[in-house]
Design a protein around this nucleic acid. Sequence first.
DNA 1: TTCAATGCAAAGCTTTTGCATAAAG
DNA 2: CTTTATGCAAAAGCTTTGCATTGAA
Lengths: 135, 135
Amino acid sequence: MAHTEYKTKQRSVIENIIKNENEHITVDGVMLKLKENGDNIGRTTVYRTLEKLSSEGKVRKYVNAGESACYQYISDNCQEHFHLKCSNCGKLIHIECKHIDELASHIEKEHNFTVNKLKTVLYGICEDCAKNEKN
Amino acid sequence: MAHTEYKTKQRSVIENIIKNENEHITVDGVMLKLKENGDNIGRTTVYRTLEKLSSEGKVRKYVNAGESACYQYISDNCQEHFHLKCSNCGKLIHIECKHIDELASHIEKEHNFTVNKLKTVLYGICEDCAKNEKN
DNA sequence: TTCAATGCAAAGCTTTTGCATAAAG
DNA sequence: CTTTATGCAAAAGCTTTGCATTGAA
């Protein structure tokens, strides 16, 4: 039936953690914060809460190859960043840069495809690895 | 140390399957084709071969939330364009567009990161799925 | 009292690893 | 004969589910 939502301590605690996280966070990350704060909340509940927030559109969920899912709260002033991943060392670099918006809006207009910047990862070689390769 | 590569029946069979697949294919998909052809090759070998091809840059690997990884052979006529992948229906769209070069050169100059267009996939929602979501 | 939420343990999936065996060079 | 590749079974991660219990309304 209609399904009335109950307000619980667990829900608000988890929601607060992800709200105060400026970057994305994994379930493990949430579990750690909970432990730090002395909150004893089951991992299952964390999964279910994040999943719920995600389906409500309050949180973005995204996955990368071989990694746990990441969640990020969608705040009003949320500056969407995107990611560069080094194919050599595996390092993940977060950058905020308006240039991808230009590409995204072009692709949306001309190719009728809405790019999800959070999900998108540009692969390549990072500065450090490029240096080392030259040696 | 140098590691000499051996030519095996399994390797060439798997490589052929993915070469003749015009879109992407999962490990399960490869297993199925193998069974169809009467080839008895272990799942582990399929994983290892695809991983190897991927790290050699011959195959592109995609990961989506809650799905098995997909692999796609990078053919010669893939060199000039890059790829959009719909997170909803999984469709892979090939586009030729110079705009990504501008982004890539900006990222290289300002963020000291060399983007690999071949490996990079932009995730988002395709036209058809966007329409359906509105209903 | 009713029904949603919780949490443990167990199950489910995909992917990786250990190790003995087979095959290539 | 030496080294790589294979394949089974088992392990490893991450995530979901079953079910009895707790707690919000």
